[in-house]
Amino acid sequence: MSPVLEIRSLSVDYGSLRAVHDVSLSLGAGEVLGLAGESGSGKSTLAYAATRLLQPPGRVPSGEVLFKGRDLLALSERQLRELRWTEIAIVFQGAMNALNPVISVGAQIDDVLRAHRPAMTRAERVARGRELLSLVGIPVDRLSSYPHQLSGGMRQRVMIAMALALEPEIVIMDEPTTALDVVVQRQILGQMMRLRETLGFSVVFITHDISLLVEFSDRIAIMYGGRVVEEAPAAEIYRAAKHPYSQGLLGSFPALRGPRRELRGIPGSPPDLRSMPSGCPFHPRCPSALEVCGERMPSLEPVDGRRVACWLEGVREAVQITPESTG
Protein backbone atom coordinates (compact mmCIF):
# COMPACT_ATOMS: atom_id res chain seq x y z
CA MET A 1 0.00 0.00 0.00
CA SER A 2 1.38 3.45 -0.90
CA PRO A 3 1.89 5.90 2.00
CA VAL A 4 -0.52 8.81 2.50
CA LEU A 5 2.41 11.13 3.25
CA GLU A 6 5.99 10.75 2.07
CA ILE A 7 8.87 13.06 2.96
CA ARG A 8 11.81 12.69 0.59
CA SER A 9 15.29 14.08 1.31
CA LEU A 10 13.91 17.18 3.07
CA SER A 11 16.36 19.77 4.38
CA VAL A 12 15.60 22.99 6.27
CA ASP A 13 17.85 26.03 6.71
CA TYR A 14 17.69 29.04 9.01
CA GLY A 15 19.88 31.51 7.18
CA SER A 16 23.25 29.80 6.82
CA LEU A 17 22.47 27.17 9.48
CA ARG A 18 21.06 23.76 8.54
CA ALA A 19 18.42 22.64 11.05
CA VAL A 20 17.17 19.49 9.25
CA HIS A 21 19.45 17.31 7.12
CA ASP A 22 18.12 15.22 4.24
CA VAL A 23 15.26 13.51 6.14
CA SER A 24 13.12 10.85 4.46
CA LEU A 25 10.05 9.40 6.22
CA SER A 26 6.70 7.91 5.25
CA LEU A 27 3.31 7.68 6.94
CA GLY A 28 0.90 4.85 6.18
CA ALA A 29 -2.90 4.99 6.19
CA GLY A 30 -4.20 4.79 9.77
CA GLU A 31 -0.65 4.66 11.17
CA VAL A 32 0.74 6.55 14.18
CA LEU A 33 4.29 7.73 13.46
CA GLY A 34 6.17 9.10 16.46
CA LEU A 35 8.97 11.66 16.23
CA ALA A 36 11.15 11.70 19.35
CA GLY A 37 14.21 13.62 20.44
CA GLU A 38 15.44 16.35 22.74
CA SER A 39 14.51 20.00 22.25
CA GLY A 40 16.33 21.36 19.23
CA SER A 41 16.58 18.02 17.43
CA GLY A 42 14.48 19.25 14.50
CA LYS A 43 11.16 17.47 15.14
CA SER A 44 8.81 20.46 14.97
CA THR A 45 10.89 22.17 12.28
CA LEU A 46 10.47 19.08 10.10
CA ALA A 47 6.68 19.02 10.62
CA TYR A 48 6.23 22.75 9.98
CA ALA A 49 8.43 22.63 6.89
CA ALA A 50 6.46 19.67 5.51
CA THR A 51 3.15 21.53 5.97
CA ARG A 52 4.45 24.92 4.74
CA LEU A 53 4.04 26.54 8.16
CA LEU A 54 7.72 27.37 8.61
CA GLN A 55 8.28 30.99 9.63
CA PRO A 56 11.04 33.20 8.12
CA PRO A 57 14.01 33.00 8.03
CA GLY A 58 13.34 29.25 7.77
CA ARG A 59 13.35 27.86 4.24
CA VAL A 60 13.38 24.49 2.47
CA PRO A 61 16.34 24.34 0.04
CA SER A 62 15.67 20.78 -1.13
CA GLY A 63 13.30 17.86 -0.80
CA GLU A 64 9.73 16.80 -1.55
CA VAL A 65 6.63 16.25 0.60
CA LEU A 66 4.17 14.04 -1.26
CA PHE A 67 0.53 13.80 -0.18
CA LYS A 68 -1.40 11.45 -2.46
CA GLY A 69 1.19 12.06 -5.12
CA ARG A 70 1.06 15.88 -4.89
CA ASP A 71 4.13 17.78 -3.71
CA LEU A 72 2.95 20.12 -0.93
CA LEU A 73 6.00 22.30 -1.43
CA ALA A 74 4.93 23.03 -5.02
CA LEU A 75 1.27 23.93 -4.33
CA SER A 76 -0.05 27.46 -4.67
CA GLU A 77 -1.37 29.30 -1.61
CA ARG A 78 -4.95 28.70 -2.75
CA GLN A 79 -4.36 24.97 -3.20
CA LEU A 80 -2.63 24.81 0.17
CA ARG A 81 -5.50 26.60 1.90
CA GLU A 82 -7.99 24.10 0.45
CA LEU A 83 -5.88 21.21 1.72
CA ARG A 84 -5.27 22.46 5.28
CA TRP A 85 -7.78 21.28 7.90
CA THR A 86 -9.70 19.30 5.27
CA GLU A 87 -6.84 16.85 4.56
CA ILE A 88 -4.06 17.71 7.02
CA ALA A 89 -4.68 19.29 10.43
CA ILE A 90 -2.33 20.26 13.26
CA VAL A 91 -2.75 20.23 17.05
CA PHE A 92 -0.29 22.91 18.09
CA GLN A 93 1.90 22.90 21.19
CA GLY A 94 0.42 24.96 24.05
CA ALA A 95 -3.36 25.10 23.64
CA MET A 96 -3.70 28.32 25.65
CA ASN A 97 -1.50 30.11 23.11
CA ALA A 98 -3.02 28.38 20.08
CA LEU A 99 -6.61 29.32 21.02
CA ASN A 100 -7.79 32.94 20.75
CA PRO A 101 -8.31 34.08 24.37
CA VAL A 102 -11.06 36.62 23.55
CA ILE A 103 -13.26 34.36 21.40
CA SER A 104 -15.43 31.55 22.74
CA VAL A 105 -14.65 27.93 21.95
CA GLY A 106 -17.82 27.60 19.88
CA ALA A 107 -16.99 30.68 17.80
CA GLN A 108 -13.50 29.34 17.03
CA ILE A 109 -14.89 26.01 15.84
CA ASP A 110 -17.49 27.95 13.86
CA ASP A 111 -14.71 29.94 12.13
CA VAL A 112 -13.12 26.73 10.85
CA LEU A 113 -16.43 25.44 9.51
CA ARG A 114 -17.40 28.75 7.87
CA ALA A 115 -14.04 29.03 6.13
CA HIS A 116 -14.01 25.50 4.71
CA ARG A 117 -17.70 24.55 4.57
CA PRO A 118 -19.43 27.73 3.36
CA ALA A 119 -22.56 25.79 2.37
CA MET A 120 -23.29 24.83 5.99
CA THR A 121 -26.03 26.81 7.76
CA ARG A 122 -25.49 28.32 11.19
CA ALA A 123 -27.67 25.63 12.77
CA GLU A 124 -25.59 22.91 11.10
CA ARG A 125 -22.36 24.53 12.30
CA VAL A 126 -23.63 24.70 15.88
CA ALA A 127 -24.74 21.07 15.70
CA ARG A 128 -21.31 20.09 14.36
CA GLY A 129 -19.61 22.03 17.18
CA ARG A 130 -21.70 20.19 19.78
CA GLU A 131 -20.90 16.88 18.08
CA LEU A 132 -17.15 17.62 18.13
CA LEU A 133 -17.11 18.53 21.82
CA SER A 134 -18.99 15.34 22.65
CA LEU A 135 -16.51 13.40 20.54
CA VAL A 136 -13.60 14.54 22.72
CA GLY A 137 -15.46 14.21 26.03
CA ILE A 138 -16.37 17.85 26.75
CA PRO A 139 -19.92 18.85 27.85
CA VAL A 140 -21.68 20.60 24.98
CA ASP A 141 -22.61 23.59 27.16
CA ARG A 142 -18.90 24.53 27.05
CA LEU A 143 -19.34 25.87 23.50
CA SER A 144 -19.94 29.30 25.00
CA SER A 145 -16.89 29.12 27.29
CA TYR A 146 -13.68 31.06 26.72
CA PRO A 147 -10.27 29.32 26.82
CA HIS A 148 -9.37 30.73 30.26
CA GLN A 149 -12.53 29.13 31.68
CA LEU A 150 -11.32 25.65 30.73
CA SER A 151 -8.70 23.42 32.33
CA GLY A 152 -5.49 22.63 30.47
CA GLY A 153 -6.77 19.20 29.53
CA MET A 154 -10.07 20.59 28.23
CA ARG A 155 -8.27 23.22 26.15
CA GLN A 156 -6.15 20.49 24.58
CA ARG A 157 -9.30 18.49 23.81
CA VAL A 158 -10.79 21.57 22.13
CA MET A 159 -7.69 21.76 19.91
CA ILE A 160 -8.16 18.10 18.98
CA ALA A 161 -11.86 18.74 18.25
CA MET A 162 -10.95 21.64 15.93
CA ALA A 163 -8.35 19.47 14.18
CA LEU A 164 -10.98 16.78 13.55
CA ALA A 165 -13.72 19.23 12.49
CA LEU A 166 -13.34 18.50 8.77
CA GLU A 167 -12.38 14.82 9.15
CA PRO A 168 -8.80 15.09 7.81
CA GLU A 169 -6.71 12.13 6.72
CA ILE A 170 -3.64 13.24 8.70
CA VAL A 171 -3.41 14.86 12.13
CA ILE A 172 -0.05 16.25 13.26
CA MET A 173 0.27 16.56 17.04
CA ASP A 174 3.15 18.82 18.13
CA GLU A 175 3.99 18.18 21.80
CA PRO A 176 0.23 18.08 22.56
CA THR A 177 0.48 17.19 26.25
CA THR A 178 3.70 18.89 27.40
CA ALA A 179 2.13 21.11 30.09
CA LEU A 180 -0.28 18.47 31.40
CA ASP A 181 0.12 16.04 34.27
CA VAL A 182 0.75 12.36 33.54
CA VAL A 183 -2.84 11.21 34.25
CA VAL A 184 -4.39 13.80 31.91
CA GLN A 185 -1.76 13.02 29.26
CA ARG A 186 -2.80 9.37 29.18
CA GLN A 187 -6.49 10.26 29.14
CA ILE A 188 -6.16 12.61 26.18
CA LEU A 189 -3.84 10.37 24.17
CA GLY A 190 -5.95 7.30 24.90
CA GLN A 191 -9.00 9.18 23.66
CA MET A 192 -7.10 10.35 20.58
CA MET A 193 -6.11 6.79 19.71
CA ARG A 194 -9.71 5.60 20.11
CA LEU A 195 -10.84 8.35 17.73
CA ARG A 196 -8.13 7.30 15.31
CA GLU A 197 -9.42 3.73 15.31
CA THR A 198 -12.98 4.96 14.77
CA LEU A 199 -12.31 7.61 12.11
CA GLY A 200 -9.28 6.01 10.44
CA PHE A 201 -6.97 9.05 10.19
CA SER A 202 -3.16 8.87 10.41
CA VAL A 203 -1.15 10.63 13.13
CA VAL A 204 2.30 12.20 13.32
CA PHE A 205 3.00 12.45 17.06
CA ILE A 206 5.89 14.77 18.04
CA THR A 207 7.28 14.68 21.58
CA HIS A 208 10.48 14.56 23.61
CA ASP A 209 8.88 11.91 25.85
CA ILE A 210 9.70 8.59 24.20
CA SER A 211 7.69 6.71 26.87
CA LEU A 212 4.49 8.16 25.36
CA LEU A 213 5.52 7.11 21.87
CA VAL A 214 6.30 3.55 22.95
CA GLU A 215 2.79 3.31 24.35
CA PHE A 216 0.80 4.95 21.55
CA SER A 217 2.82 4.76 18.29
CA ASP A 218 3.10 2.09 15.63
CA ARG A 219 6.50 3.29 14.46
CA ILE A 220 9.07 5.69 15.93
CA ALA A 221 11.71 7.88 14.29
CA ILE A 222 14.42 9.19 16.63
CA MET A 223 15.91 12.57 15.65
CA TYR A 224 19.18 14.10 16.78
CA GLY A 225 20.97 17.14 15.42
CA GLY A 226 18.41 17.52 12.62
CA ARG A 227 18.83 13.93 11.41
CA VAL A 228 16.90 10.69 11.81
CA VAL A 229 19.32 8.37 13.62
CA GLU A 230 16.97 5.40 14.09
CA GLU A 231 13.57 4.36 12.77
CA ALA A 232 11.79 1.16 13.81
CA PRO A 233 8.48 -0.28 15.03
CA ALA A 234 7.70 1.06 18.50
CA ALA A 235 7.88 -2.39 20.11
CA GLU A 236 11.31 -2.99 18.59
CA ILE A 237 12.63 0.37 19.80
CA TYR A 238 11.46 -0.45 23.32
CA ARG A 239 12.73 -4.02 23.25
CA ALA A 240 16.15 -3.39 21.74
CA ALA A 241 17.05 0.11 20.58
CA LYS A 242 20.23 0.01 18.49
CA HIS A 243 21.44 3.62 18.36
CA PRO A 244 23.19 4.80 21.58
CA TYR A 245 21.04 7.95 21.57
CA SER A 246 17.84 5.90 21.43
CA GLN A 247 19.16 3.77 24.28
CA GLY A 248 19.92 6.94 26.27
CA LEU A 249 16.39 8.27 25.78
CA LEU A 250 14.88 4.96 26.89
CA GLY A 251 17.15 4.84 29.93
CA SER A 252 16.10 8.29 31.10
CA PHE A 253 12.48 7.48 32.00
CA PRO A 254 11.19 5.02 34.63
CA ALA A 255 9.65 1.72 33.55
CA LEU A 256 5.88 1.52 33.99
CA ARG A 257 6.08 -2.12 35.08
CA GLY A 258 8.67 -4.57 36.38
CA PRO A 259 11.52 -4.08 38.85
CA ARG A 260 12.84 -0.66 39.76
CA ARG A 261 15.99 0.39 37.93
CA GLU A 262 18.41 3.25 38.07
CA LEU A 263 17.71 6.02 35.59
CA ARG A 264 20.57 7.00 33.30
CA GLY A 265 20.61 10.44 31.78
CA ILE A 266 22.49 11.44 28.64
CA PRO A 267 25.59 13.48 29.52
CA GLY A 268 26.20 16.84 27.87
CA SER A 269 23.84 18.97 25.81
CA PRO A 270 22.36 18.79 22.29
CA PRO A 271 24.66 20.23 19.60
CA ASP A 272 24.69 23.92 18.72
CA LEU A 273 23.70 24.49 15.08
CA ARG A 274 26.40 27.17 14.87
CA SER A 275 29.19 24.73 15.72
CA MET A 276 28.11 21.20 14.86
CA PRO A 277 30.69 18.52 15.69
CA SER A 278 32.40 16.70 12.84
CA GLY A 279 31.28 13.19 11.95
CA CYS A 280 28.30 11.83 13.86
CA PRO A 281 26.71 14.74 15.81
CA PHE A 282 26.12 12.46 18.82
CA HIS A 283 29.70 11.22 19.19
CA PRO A 284 30.79 13.83 21.83
CA ARG A 285 28.07 12.46 24.16
CA CYS A 286 28.19 8.82 23.09
CA PRO A 287 29.60 6.31 25.64
CA SER A 288 30.47 3.89 22.82
CA ALA A 289 32.00 6.28 20.26
CA LEU A 290 34.66 4.94 17.90
CA GLU A 291 37.41 6.90 16.17
CA VAL A 292 35.48 6.92 12.91
CA CYS A 293 32.48 8.51 14.65
CA GLY A 294 34.32 11.82 14.94
CA GLU A 295 35.46 11.73 11.33
CA ARG A 296 32.52 10.61 9.16
CA MET A 297 28.74 10.82 9.41
CA PRO A 298 27.13 7.36 9.06
CA SER A 299 24.23 7.05 6.65
CA LEU A 300 20.81 5.76 7.67
CA GLU A 301 20.97 2.11 6.63
CA PRO A 302 18.69 -0.94 7.03
CA VAL A 303 19.71 -3.08 10.04
CA ASP A 304 17.58 -6.02 11.24
CA GLY A 305 14.28 -4.67 9.90
CA ARG A 306 14.87 -1.05 10.91
CA ARG A 307 16.99 1.93 9.81
CA VAL A 308 19.97 3.02 11.92
CA ALA A 309 22.70 5.64 11.39
CA CYS A 310 25.54 4.34 13.58
CA TRP A 311 29.08 3.15 12.84
CA LEU A 312 28.84 0.92 15.90
CA GLU A 313 26.11 -1.12 14.25
CA GLY A 314 28.29 -1.63 11.20
CA VAL A 315 31.16 -2.81 13.40
CA ARG A 316 28.88 -5.20 15.26
CA GLU A 317 27.70 -6.72 12.00
CA ALA A 318 31.30 -7.16 10.85
CA VAL A 319 32.31 -8.75 14.15
CA GLN A 320 29.43 -11.22 13.98
CA ILE A 321 30.63 -12.72 10.69
CA THR A 322 34.36 -13.02 11.42
CA PRO A 323 35.82 -16.39 12.53
CA GLU A 324 37.37 -14.78 15.63
CA SER A 325 33.95 -13.74 16.88
CA THR A 326 32.82 -17.35 17.13
CA GLY A 327 35.85 -18.56 19.08
Rank of each mutant, 00 (worst) to 15 (best):
V32G: 03
S44Q: 05
L249M: 11
H148N: 13
L72F: 09
L132M: 01
P254G: 14
A221Y: 00
R78S: 02
R186V: 09
E31N: 09
P270Y: 02
L273R: 08
L312K: 13
R128A: 13
A29Q: 14
A98N: 06
I206K: 00
M162K: 02
S299A: 15
P57V: 04
E131W: 14
C310A: 01
A123D: 15
A240K: 15
T322R: 15
E175M: 08
V32C: 15
M193T: 13
E87H: 10
P147F: 03
L273N: 05
A115K: 08
S39W: 08
G153C: 11
E236M: 06
K68G: 13
Y224N: 01
S275M: 07
L189N: 07
D22P: 02
V126G: 09
I109E: 03
A74N: 12
T45M: 12
F92A: 11
R18N: 07
G258F: 03
P277V: 08
D174I: 10
N100Y: 11
L263K: 01
P277I: 10
S39E: 05
S76W: 05
L33K: 02
V4T: 11
R261A: 14
I321K: 15
A232T: 06
A234C: 01
R186E: 11
L195V: 06
L164H: 05
L256Q: 12
M162R: 13
K242L: 15
R261E: 15
A165R: 03
L256K: 12
P298I: 13
V105R: 09
A221R: 00
L75C: 12
S44P: 06
L312A: 08
T178R: 07
P267R: 11
S134I: 07
A50W: 01
S252T: 10
R219Y: 01
A179Y: 10
G34R: 00
D13Q: 14
V171K: 01
L180N: 00
G58I: 05
F253S: 11
L33R: 03
A119E: 15
G15R: 05
E295W: 13
P176Q: 05
L180D: 04
V20W: 05
A49F: 03
S202H: 06
A255W: 12
A49H: 08
E87R: 11
M154W: 07
P61L: 04
L273F: 13
Q247G: 07
R196E: 08
A119T: 14
A179R: 02
I88Q: 01
L10R: 05
P298Y: 08
L80E: 00
V140F: 08
L133F: 07
I206A: 00
A89D: 04
S24M: 13
G190T: 15
A318G: 12
S39V: 06
A235G: 10
E215M: 05
G106Q: 04
P277G: 06
A36S: 07
P147E: 03
A29I: 09
I210L: 06
M276A: 08
I206R: 00
P271T: 12
F253T: 13
A95N: 06
M120A: 09
R257T: 14
A179C: 02
R142S: 14
Q149V: 04
H283L: 08
W85N: 00
L213T: 01
Q149T: 08
L132Q: 04
F205T: 00
R122Y: 10
S41Q: 02
A163P: 07
D22G: 03
P271G: 09
S144D: 15
D71M: 06
S278M: 12
L17V: 14
L5A: 00
D110W: 02
R142Q: 10
G94H: 07
